[in-house]
Design a protein around this nucleic acid. Structure first.
Lengths: 166, 166
DNA sequence: CGTGAAACCGTCGCCCC
DNA sequence: GGGGCGACGGTTTCACG
């Protein structure tokens, strides 16, 4: 079971840095109840072990002029591993596609796209996505309004499960 | 048009902080070509104006033991504004629901859920989501594997459009 | 927006348990 | 193994030009 190698202090560090990634190390150390040097060593270890992938400013897309968010459901002709990989790699190269997840069920992939306006998205849809080899079908849904958009994971659910198992 | 009040330096600041939210202010200042004090003033202004909503460590869900990611498509019985708001507020209180977007088309909402294991998710699905008033239907799709998961917005697409308009 | 100065922080070596 | 203390260099963040 992953996550077992982390002690409660590590989990607290991760939760705090997920909530505020620009917190100073001394502030973080105070919150998790140890002094600054060991706290910084733990953070570096968590980064190197891949638990922390990076730090990002959370920018307001709409405020910045990205008015269009779209979820695109993509079906492929061939689901052979090589063809899946090719499609995934293509998505990684489209900066307008922010997320690409392979799903079970009727559809093969869900894409979350962000664009400044509808015409920019339509151009991507017709000239890039739909013209891609192996793409059989694309169904798009515009985001009318966002109700919640929290990055990261629910640490409280994790703690609940750890308490339940204990 | 939003985004017009930002000059090229502000946009560069946002792009840099989106790429690395823990960059020091002096490093940021160097990259955008001004000295540290005005750079910090710009960052504070961008924060207070809401362009920057916060900073978050990007944690690896799977490495941390969150093995299950699910997209849930939710249809409601009533789409009256009051009923939509009630549903959105409920989603905000479910920590396992990380995103909730209202969509056009057949379905009313798409939810992105993160859970440590399938049974935790199933419990949420049957005991919380499906028992909610006004929920007519829920279709879930498990994420088989993630191919791309970049937070934020595509600044390069924005710059392209600005150049095109100019 | 830049300069300078003061306070603070990140970071290291060392000692302790 | 991990945590704490002290000190140096770099950073944040003022006031001022």
């Amino acid at each position: 079971m992953p996550g077992t190698r982390l002690d409660p202090i590590d989990r607290k560090i991760l939760a705090e840095l997920q909530a505020d990634g620009r917190m100073t190390n001394v502030e973080l150390a105070k919150r998790v109840g140890i002094s600054a040097p060991p706290c910084l060593r733990r953070v570096r270890t968590l980064e190197e072990a891949g638990f922390i992938r990076g730090y990002h400013a959370d920018v307001d897309a709409r405020e910045l002029g990205f008015e269009v968010q779209v979820f695109a459901m993509v079906g492929l002709v061939s689901q052979a591993e090589a063809d899946l990989s090719i499609f995934e790699e293509r998505c990684r190269n489209w900066s307008l596609v922010r997320e690409c997840h392979m799903l079970n069920g009727e559809v093969d992939f869900i894409l979350k796209c962000v664009a400044p306006d509808l015409s920019t998205f339509q151009r991507f849809l017709t000239e890039d996505l739909l013209k891609s080899e192996n793409v059989a079908s694309v169904k798009t849904s515009l985001v009318i309004r966002g109700a919640k958009d929290d990055p990261g994971v629910p640490f409280d659910v994790m703690e609940e499960r750890l308490n339940r198992d204990a």
